[in-house]
Design a protein around this nucleic acid. Structure first.
Lengths: 338, 338
DNA sequence: GTCATTTTTGACACCGGTTACCCAATTAAT
DNA sequence: ATTAATTGGGTAACCGGTGTCAAAAATGAC
């Protein structure tokens, strides 16, 4: 090995005694190519250790071999789960993962994303909730004809561009589980207004109550913002009003844990006095004591599925399944009411 | 606006009536150019909305305008903090952020990273701890002459390639703080063996004790692995042996919180019976009750600084400062012993 | 064996920038 | 006035792939 800079497609072509276009066909697995030539070229590629230059391909194809995750979501665990999912989806491919946060409230958000797409020209983007709900971003992706998948809690678009979980059904199951345990007065701590996922989760709550023939008690419903503090506040507010609920369903784990801590601070034992169910299945939910009964939210699988939708050719089976199940995880924070 | 595809450098050159090379000089801020020409070209660029094509530049320059964060660290909060820091560092530049996890234990780790660098040709990489301690990765970066910065807890390399925090000093301060409060029997929950940061933190603990003239009591030192569970285990083990410590210093917040929960489960009140100090200043540490007195670890600033080192030209002032201070955050988990 | 048809392959321009090198016009020095 | 040094800017090749389209080769029908 001398002063060899990386071999190029030209080197392969010369050694294999074919045109560079033929080599190009080989590395792109083009079907219109005789097996004999293909094998010959592949042998040379292996022999001289040729690796196609992504930058050149990117220039010619006008797109990078990169998938971008665009988010405005500050939750670390969520973000990392999504990243892991995408990375799993692109493992053993030549794709890489880029991360691009945006500011939901910025007036220049469209321009910012436009600049990003124009500069990096990702092969595809995964839009994370809640920003995924904005149609303008999907529109932007189409404009740059960049593939995209929106992660969300309901179908926002056609199956090819969406992956979501059945939150409503999962919450219905979870609340029904509480009801089956004997709870009838169940408090609800909601998520932030204006987004799909909290809306769906609330809908699931209502459906469960209705199916069980239980009346919705508005005095047991409190707003929340998916933060630990809002869970504390909501629970404290409930208790200040003389809460007579025997169970609390919080629309995410952080709030559930906040509620748990608040209850305990007020002398209520968990789960003996109050049962609690959360949503998300964050690592923390199994660390605390008692461990939190919660709904597992399949973010990682959703992200994986999103990545596959982007890299698989249109029409692949991966383009079809867009709904992943959220499932109840029974742990230690629920017992029948005493 | 008709069927205008994106304007290229050629369009600018034609409209401005100069050569494309001159336009190239303008966008690269070359000094050998008259102000008159520069202004003329800049006006045209603005007028027709020209944005240089990154893929073309990447091909010509043999490197992408991307900074990659390479990590083998599973902690979500840490990862996201680093990402935020880097993103802040590259804000208002044309750079993007890529994420590349690696498996510390994989025998092919070098080959994997080599493949990554070869494919994506990032402009620079930020090596996150603990994988940043491996010299072979830095070597790999040099081989691909890709800029790199290693994040760590001590100086591993020259200032240009390192950014770290003074963990040892910070722990010394924190433990001295406990001592000043009147604690003399202080337990230590260590981090995993074989890495720099736990070693430094332990060293800080020892220095503080020594300076205060207190003898190191090995029976109050427990191993840990930076996980919540290991904190629980360590504290339980201490209590099982009839712990007589009035304070615990845990080498990270997760273990500190684990210890806190374990203590409470054994009927010890925090902070009345046992004071606890952690390290990291994770969001959780201010959410729990009592809030955790801890050492703020400036990860985000370290990451920001790393990003600047990579994009700033060699010799910039940003290449010089490589040490960021970790500082004690006083909250509610420490009181004088009773 | 000839001709039409299909399959393989190659020549060449192009993607949109950069670098190396050269020439012309000024300015400074002799 | 002549030469040398400096500055401003252009030409053409190149980075390493891909698309188009036509030529060459293989196949099949008669």
């Amino acid at each position: 090995m001398g002063t060899d800079s990386k071999p190029t497609i030209n080197d392969v072509a010369r050694v294999a005694n074919v045109s560079k276009k033929t080599v190009s066909r080989v590395i792109n697995k083009s079907p219109l190519l005789s097996d004999k030539t293909r094998e010959k070229v592949e042998a040379v590629i292996k022999e001289i250790g040729f690796v196609p230059n992504m930058q050149a391909r990117a220039l010619a194809l006008r797109r990078n071999f990169i998938i971008a995750a665009i988010h405005d979501n500050p939750n670390a665990q969520f973000l990392v789960n999504v990243q892991q999912g995408i990375l799993e989806g692109i493992a053993d491919t030549e794709f890489g993962l880029m991360v691009q946060p945006v500011d939901r409230n910025s007036p220049t958000i469209e321009a910012d994303i436009r600049a990003f797409l124009e500069r990096q020209r990702p092969y595809g983007v995964v839009l994370l909730p809640p920003i995924s709900e904005r149609d303008s971003l999907a529109e932007l992706c189409r404009e740059f004809d960049c593939r995209y998948v929106r992660m969300g809690s309901v179908q926002l678009d056609d199956a090819e561009h969406v992956v979501s979980s059945n939150d409503r059904e999962a919450v219905r199951d979870a609340v029904t589980y509480l009801i089956d345990k004997g709870h009838t007065r169940i408090a609800l701590i909601e998520g932030p207004e204006g987004f799909t996922s909290p809306r769906e989760r609330r809908a699931g709550f209502e459906e469960a109550m209705e199916r069980a023939g239980l009346e919705l008690d508005e005095s047991l419903i409190r707003p929340g913002s998916y933060t630990f503090e809002s869970g504390v506040t909501a629970a404290e507010d409930l208790m200040a009003k003389g809460m007579n609920a025997t169970a609390i369903f919080a629309c995410n784990d952080e709030m559930a844990i906040g509620a748990m801590i608040a209850c305990r601070r007020h002398g209520l034992r968990i789960p003996e006095d109050v049962s609690i169910v959360g949503f998300d299945d964050t690592p923390l939910s199994s660390h605390i004591w008692p461990s939190l009964t919660t709904v597992h939210w399949p973010i990682k699988q959703m992200a994986l599925s999103a990545a596959r939708k982007i890299i698989d050719p249109p029409g692949s089976p991966s383009q079809q399944d867009w709904l992943l199940p959220s499932t109840l995880i029974e742990r230690g924070s629920v017992v029948p009411p005493t």
